[in-house]
């Protein structure tokens, strides 16, 4: 989920936008007053009413609804809770050892995902780029994008079938003389399963942005490198890699910004009480606390904490990105 949205900031476009000031700026008419603007553009504004209502009700109301983290909430009562209880629920989860265990799991799974799923699309894009023949190229691309279009339920189903006792992985184990393993029942295997299925699902799709960046590299640079006697390797090292470096850096920083947002849906589908020790993350924990056990205020407090960490990470990642590579999300 985070990959598509982080693609927004291509450093080249941002950079060039900064270098060339908007040509229309000089001709822009003086700022109208609101009354004039409304008279002139009321039809445009009217088109924005329904979408704004959507954002207000389904995006901003829930944000305000987080107030139940500080108020006692009665199911069936007011959306915004009944009485103020101050920081009671905050203190409660800060003193909850299970919370810290799921917090650690979140950081570990997020970190592993970043470590394995961030570099792979670069490698795959470089390999695909070296293919001759556009047909083969297109075929490899089409196949590698495919898993991106599957429902998470199907992905989880495929993982379960592959790893089931009668599945191919255990068939291989048996054939090589090993004992079958109930992979999904063992906490020690969960992170491996999660990260590799995540790679299967996202790496191909992640190459799109790099393949696009590769096409923008000027052919003259390769020409010049060849004339200087650079072989294929040195061309890749001195031309290709520097060419995609800004894209890679931007995506890296943005991925660091969203690394706590681990795949809630997939974990919810794949984990079970036996694997909770390694699999349970903040979002699944608060789901069980809130929706399953009806501790809405307590779960909302955890959710608010997680959202604030996420926001802080994104904001600081964006700040670093703006300072270092000059790319910003907004």
């Amino acid at each position: 989920m985070s990959t598509t949205r982080t693609i927004n900031a291509s450093p080249d476009t941002v950079g060039s936008r900064r270098a060339r000031p908007d040509p229309g700026r000089g001709r822009r008419p003086p700022r109208r007053t609101w009354r004039q603007a409304l008279r002139r553009d009321w039809q445009l504004y009217s088109l924005a009413i329904l979408p704004l209502l959507f954002f207000l009700v389904f995006r901003y109301l829930p944000m305000i609804g987080n107030i139940i983290a500080f108020r006692k909430f009665e199911p069936g009562g007011s959306v915004f809770g009944e009485d103020w209880v101050g920081l009671r629920y905050i203190r409660m989860f800060l003193n909850d050892p299970s919370f810290w265990s799921v917090f650690t799991n979140t950081v570990i799974i997020g970190g592993l995902t970043l470590l394995f799923c961030f570099p792979m699309p670069i490698v795959l894009a470089l390999l695909i780029n070296e293919l001759r023949g556009s047909r083969v190229k297109r075929f490899v691309q089409s196949v590698s994008y495919l898993p991106h279009f599957l429902s998470m339920v199907v992905v989880a189903g495929l993982v379960m079938e592959l790893l089931s006792l009668d599945g191919p992985v255990n068939q291989l184990l048996r054939a090589t003389g090993g004992d079958p393993v109930a992979f999904l029942q063992e906490a020690g295997w969960f992170r491996t399963i999660y990260v590799s299925s995540e790679m299967w699902q996202t790496v191909g799709w992640g190459t799109i942005i790099y393949l696009a960046a590769l096409t923008t590299i000027d052919d003259q640079l390769y020409e010049a490198a060849r004339i200087d006697g650079a072989g294929r390797w040195r061309q890749i090292w001195h031309v290709t890699l520097p060419g995609i470096l800004p894209t890679a850096l931007t995506l890296l920083i943005l991925n660091i910004g969203t690394f706590m947002a681990v795949g809630f849906e997939k974990i919810l589908l794949l984990y079970n009480p036996l694997t909770y020790p390694t699999a349970d993350v903040i979002s699944t924990y608060l789901y069980r606390m809130g929706i399953v056990s009806n501790n809405f205020s307590y779960a909302a407090a955890i959710g608010l904490f997680e959202a604030l960490i996420g926001l802080t990470l994104v904001l600081s990642a964006n700040l670093i990105s703006r300072r270092t590579v000059g790319a910003s999300l907004w």
């Binding site: 901003y60 109301l61 305000i64 809405f296």
Partner: peptide, 17 residues
Amino acid sequence: AVFTMFFTGGLIPNYVL
């Protein structure tokens, strides 16, 4: 609109709403 990409109400308030 863009702000909602980075900060959301979260599961519980949405469910309650």
